[in-house]
Write a protein that binds this DNA or RNA. Structure first.
Lengths: 191, 191, 191, 191
DNA sequence: AATGAATGAGCGTTCATTCAT
DNA sequence: CATGAATGAACGCTCATTCAT
């Protein structure tokens, strides 16, 4: 096993165990053991358990952001673009259930330092913010305060991914998929 | 200090510390010390740290449910009733910021046993579910799958309370208050 | 329940629990609870857990000594008298299995203070000592050192009661009963 | 201090303290401290205090069994062989007073799990059992039930070692040594 | 870089004992 | 005399972290 393999094995194992047992219930010794390395090795790659957690969090956030960024389109039809974005985001969650679960569990937990958490939130909500401002400028979306709309959308996204993660077969159902998007979109529409 | 005072002091201190430091970072010794009782006293009233947590959770959930239940009206105007419900719920959160914070942190955390958590969720989401079914029957709300709508509303509620808790002065602003309700209501209306 | 009843209930419960769970694994709270009294009541009757234990030990030892004393005969036939004594002693153990078990467990354990233990041993072994000296004077028993013979007899008695307590049906068998006595008696006879 | 040294230091210290203070009155912290290691080190080598105890018990039982096994002879003269066995067993106890004391205290105590205790008893009493059956076949020993004889011999052995451990100078006295054996042997002899 | 034995502060919990009622 | 809530020292044990190899 090469160096990179060991570091990656530690990260992979940590993700699995943090999600299934929780951060505090997972000992560094158990991560090392299940990753097939010595306890000391974990601390060669990460200065502390907290740093391992933050590293993991930033890694996953970046993966998600990259996936979303790659799926952004500008077709001229804002609603269509928004639907594409919404669907891509949930699809990523369905494709990466462990990572999404990790996000759900730790994006609001004190196990992750505040600055890291906020940094992650901003970068993701940034996409949505830009889209919303565009919609407002076009008169498609209501002129609600932007930060309120952003937080609301984030809450809807967390609820939607939790729902579909718990009921994966429903994500295959076009009615559910469509309803999920409309709940998100109509909330903001100029009525 | 009377008997009840000591038990209550433990519960109050535990609430404060669990919210500010997290469950695992809060030692039973620190709860006892700050509550002004001996370590043994905590275990005289609660068989374990976990049971103390569950007790706290059920207590707060019941308080919230009682507050919501007391504010339910049936005026014949569903949208008006819904707004009253929505406003009351957020108002309770604004009046009890510590308890709302506790809810945000622990309603999805493994620190609370699954059955206790689900029991709490169901009792609260039950109100919303009934209201939604009524709205669908009247043709006011879209015929989206009920469970999806419920989870979506819950997500919006968590987002709204977090937003107003972080920006309490905005809850005084009628525009924000109105926008918050419309985001919730319009998401579900029949378009 | 009268005062004496409560004190006796505590002693009875302590005997049962000390035998079945051991001294250290039995909490004073559990004794009080099972005896149907408050925790404080135990400490009204006995100044400490250790004193309760010593009290129990002396009580039982006295009961045993009384039973043996009552069964001593002087028929002129030493072997017959010895057999009667031996049989009576084991019979008492069979009739009071809990108390005998208590004896087996604690007569050598540090849970009971040394002086109390020695005091108990001497009073019981005294009977045997007198009998042995008589036998030696008559030329029936070998002139082995008296203390060695006493300790040997005690060891045989403990072994015999343990055996018959574990196999109570064999105590009904005359062959076993006779063999048990002969092992004891022949060990000491002048060969 | 090497690794093995530390583990051995823990075992040695535990033996001394368990014998002098008892199992429950000896804290793991005191064992570690007196052994010159950290508390965690004890638990690095033994998963729990109970396991440390069982380990100790099995170690000592094995040592004793090995010593006895090495001293077994088959000279054709059964009584002579028996005396050799008896003397060797007591000699081991005199040479290892701490370990013998440990045996006396714990071979019947609930601090050691039942299966471990029985396993130890059987392996030791096995020697005696074989010797007795041989004696019965030769018509030298009485036809008492074998298990009763075994238990009886065990009781005599415990009594003899206790006696000589408490009075070590008497083990030097040929009269005491001879008497001790005759008490054991004559008990079983065909009369 | 990798190892894993060693560390010791800190944890949740127990329980003999006290004392106000 | 009886009660049981309260006490706090002490327990067995865990685990993030260090460091000699």
């Amino acid at each position: 096993m090469s160096k990179l393999d060991k570091k990656q094995a530690i990260l992979d194992t940590a993700l699995t165990l943090f999600v299934s047992q929780g951060f505090y219930a997972t000992s560094t010794a158990s991560i090392a053991k299940q990753a097939g390395v010595a306890t000391g090795t974990l601390f060669h790659h990460f200065p502390s358990k907290d740093e391992l957690m933050n590293h993991l969090f930033l890694n996953i956030k970046q993966e998600f952001a990259d996936a979303i960024l790659a799926s952004i389109k500008d077709s001229g039809d804002l609603k269509k673009d928004a639907k594409h974005l919404w669907t891509s985001a949930i699809q990523w969650a369905m494709d990466n259930p462990l990572k999404q679960e990790f996000f759900q569990q730790y994006s609001m937990s004190p196990s992750i330092s505040t600055e890291i958490r906020e940094q992650a939130m901003n970068s993701i909500l940034g996409f949505m913010g830009a889209l919303m401002q565009k919609g407002q400028a076009l008169g498609l979306l209501a002129n609600y305060p932007l930060t309120l709309m952003q937080d609301n959308s984030h809450g809807q996204f967390l609820a939607a991914t939790r729902f579909f993660l718990d009921n994966p077969e429903k994500w295959q159902d076009p009615q559910h998929q469509e309803a999920s998007f409309l709940l998100f979109w109509n909330a903001m529409v100029q009525s």
